[in-house]
Simulated scan of single mutants.
Amino acid sequence: MLTRIDHIGIACFDLDKTVEFYRATYGFEVFHTEVNEEQGVREAMLKINETSDGGASYLQLLEPIREDSAVGKWLAKNGEGVHHIAFGTADVDTDSEAIRDKGVRVLYEEPRRGSMNSRITFLHPKDCHGVLTELVTAAPRTAAPHAAEDRSGAAGESTPPSTTQADH
């Protein structure tokens, strides 16, 4: 069962400048940053609030590090703005299978590792009224990442490699 809005992904040209806008305008602070070489993005998670299910809601700012990344291609076509919405779930495997059974295309056969060690998958935007939709099971809570940057590319977001907003 989907329990919350986990995050809203926002594509941007300049991560540092966009982070500063959200900090100065709304008071949001960076909770976590990382680079995902495989997905071709650098990201910042800005924590908005805690949620009743033990998770949190975030804004995820995504800057492409390569023009040929999904976010890079999306930005070239659409400019800055909302890239996707992510819903939190206690069990991404069960919920993605139930959604697949309803005829919605799930982009990954098996959920993958996402930001902050979460497990994620995406739903095709053509099946979700034009909205690229992500399902997220947050990693068990330990210590907060405190904006530590992971440059290994092993962890990270989440942008599906073969489907972009341009596909809908």
Rank of each mutant, 00 (worst) to 15 (best):
H32F: 10
I8G: 00
G88S: 13
I65C: 11
V35N: 04
V136S: 13
R141M: 13
T159V: 01
K47Y: 10
H129I: 14
I5C: 00
S158A: 08
V136R: 07
D53K: 10
G81V: 15
L75F: 10
S115L: 05
A44I: 04
E97A: 12
F31V: 02
L75G: 12
T25H: 04
N78R: 14
V104H: 03
T133I: 14
H32E: 02
I5Q: 00
T89K: 07
G72A: 05
L2F: 04
T94A: 12
F21H: 04
L62T: 15
A138I: 14
T89A: 03
N36A: 09
E109N: 11
A138L: 13
G130Q: 08
F21E: 02
L123T: 05
S57K: 15
Q165P: 01
N49P: 01
A24M: 12
A76W: 14
A143V: 15
R151I: 11
P145S: 08
T25C: 03
A86D: 10
R42T: 02
P111D: 05
D93G: 14
T51E: 05
I85G: 11
E149C: 08
H124K: 05
P64F: 10
F13E: 09
L15Q: 00
G103M: 13
I5N: 00
V41W: 02
A56P: 03
F87Q: 06
G9N: 01
F122D: 09
N36M: 08
P111I: 08
K77G: 12
E80L: 03
T137F: 11
I65L: 03
W74L: 12
E29K: 03
V41C: 04
E63T: 11
T163I: 15
V82L: 09
D167N: 06
G9I: 00
G81W: 13
D6C: 06
V92W: 08
S57W: 08
R105W: 08
R66E: 11
L135S: 05
T3N: 07
E97W: 15
